[in-house]
Design a protein around this nucleic acid. Structure first.
Lengths: 199, 199, 199, 199
DNA sequence: GATGAATGAGCTTTCATTCAT
DNA sequence: AATGAATGAAAGCTCATTCAT
């Protein structure tokens, strides 16, 4: 039986939900248990302690995060990736708030920091390799090394992720589309410049 | 006198220090008092409650934040601004961690959110106007509206601010310089493109 | 089983005891816990907060209060009721002090006020109906409507209840008996007056 | 200069007002100072400590209380006294709540208890002597000793005083008049009974 | 004469965690 | 496998009181 795993997943969802809605600071095992419809004792039965729960939430969230980079590796479409990023904000409005909360607290919880560092580095590597392909094929400017570009793009998204929960009203669909287009413009080779573009 | 103000400022520094070193979640009036070398009662004597203290910290931090945009208005130098941003990370290593903590928690403390929204919006406006001048004078690409470019640049910095406390080791001086140069490259008109540059 | 209820009852007794001996003002969860031989956390485990505890104490006390009016409904004996009232002062010397404290504080705790208003009104109604029966059967004067008489009798007892904890020495057994007799005299038809007395 | 006395009186009024509106439990020197428009330090300058302040409030309140019994000693009019009692509830709506709060807390503050015992006893004596005169002159029933009657009347009023702040809505003018009439009826000789009435 | 600074104890409440069942 | 009881520490906050000025 994956019964145990199913229950754990259920608790992870509950925890993520509480983090998104109440903030990491106000997240307690009690509230998680309540949202999952069980007792506090039950939570500590499935997770040795709060730290373990938070780390498990983080891992599961990064799984979803990485999935956003999955693409036709032959012809990566950066715009599509950014649009997928954007789609998350409407399809799963709790996703970015949770990530934002976890990242911000990582510094003060070493075990959590370790997990995030590893996963985030891997994520950035994937992004860098996508961008490198993009550069080789033409649609991505190649006057900046791919790994630096990946860092910048990741930072850009982190910045959006950070502000999005704070000023949701500022992110109207139109504005978001404009921001996305601008981001694409930033990383696209300028028309006048020619570089050996792929097929 | 100004004695009262001096003491308040002292407590604000203590509070910021605790926030930076222990994280917002683990910041308590007790710890702030301890760091300031006084009692909890003393803190609540100068600040009606924790919320008021946190908001005061935020205001004072934004004052320093805004100061980073102060420039020779005639010829804004974006690179200098980014370098000043960077200088903060070494001169006052607690600055960005504090900002990051405050921003992330704003969502869950309405009064704090209000303050941040206003100050942050003002900050972005200043940045946008600097960029607009830069566009008119030439050194900033003008194929993206200044306000969008400001949003992007702000998001970029927010992203750095968020990751910097988590992965300090990744931000070696060399790498930071490279990131900074890349950011400049991103917002600089491409060589081949000509736009009416101001005098 | 019923374990939880038993523990709650135990805490209610402890709380009542503290209220009686230290006064409502100086009653704290700590003291209640201490008297019950457990920790503060234990108290808040059984009662969500102080208000809930106080209200539970009130309800349980009113149960005992109402019981004092239980009587052979066919032939209510007002004197016996008053004597039962009196007996409380010796059998359960904390009873009236607790009631007095609760009533006095009700005004400043809306939730408590609501409970007391309802229960007290019901109590007065019971008393009024007893008095009405007494009037119909003869032993109670009928030149004053039963509900007014009930209000007066209730006020009289409230007044005693209020002074009893303050001046216990003034309430010697003899004096109390005299007061009780006088109260009976007040509500008894005067000898010379004839009214259709019931069988 | 009675300057000091004037300031003290001002503080006493402020204290009484706070007690009436917030309840004894929630009365703090801070609030009293605030209502009087001065600092906490100022209050402790005029009164050594909280206890002294409360006792001074009590004394001043009993002065007003005693005044209610002042009457044409030749022909005391009990009904007029009760009506004066009643008038207080409308003219000075904070009077009875304050008395009620003070009395209820007396038990737990020995110094306060002493003051109240003395003043209250004196008050009851005055009332008893008025009733004795009333008995001699006829309008008061004389089948109950005057001192017992005084105790009952005092208890009756205490009971009203206690409930009045809790259930103000129940004390409509009509109802109060009816209660007052009923009280008079209770202590008036019954028509059929003859006793040697004074001229 | 009066104030404002500061203290330290106390409060209610929340919480992660432990443990017997 | 899961619960409910219980703990003890910590939190934010209020307060009476002291004291230098």
């Amino acid at each position: 039986m994956g019964d145990r795993e199913a229950k754990r997943a259920e608790l992870l969802e509950a925890a993520a939900s509480v983090i998104a809605q109440e903030g990491y600071t106000h997240t307690s095992l009690r509230k998680v248990a309540q949202r999952a419809g069980c007792t506090t004792g039950s939570v500590t039965y499935y997770f040795a302690n709060k730290e373990e729960l938070v780390i498990a939430v983080t891992e599961s969230r990064f799984d979803g995060f990485d999935a956003m980079l999955e693409t036709d590796q032959g012809r990566p479409d950066i715009k599509a990736i950014l649009e997928r990023w954007l789609a998350r904000t409407t399809n799963d409005p709790e996703f970015w708030p949770v990530m934002s909360q976890l990242l911000t607290h990582a510094r003060y919880e070493p075990a959590l920091a370790t997990v995030i560092e590893q996963r985030y580095a891997r994520h950035r590597d994937s992004l860098a390799s996508l961008l490198a392909t993009g550069q080789a094929q033409g649609p991505v400017r190649d006057d900046i090394p791919a790994d630096l570009l990946a860092d910048q793009l990741a930072a850009l998204c982190d910045g959006w992720m950070m502000m999005l929960p704070i000023e949701p009203d500022r992110f109207t669909p139109d504005r978001v589309q404009a921001l996305l287009d601008a981001a694409i413009t930033l990383i696209t080779p300028s028309p006048g410049t020619s570089s050996t573009s792929g097929g």
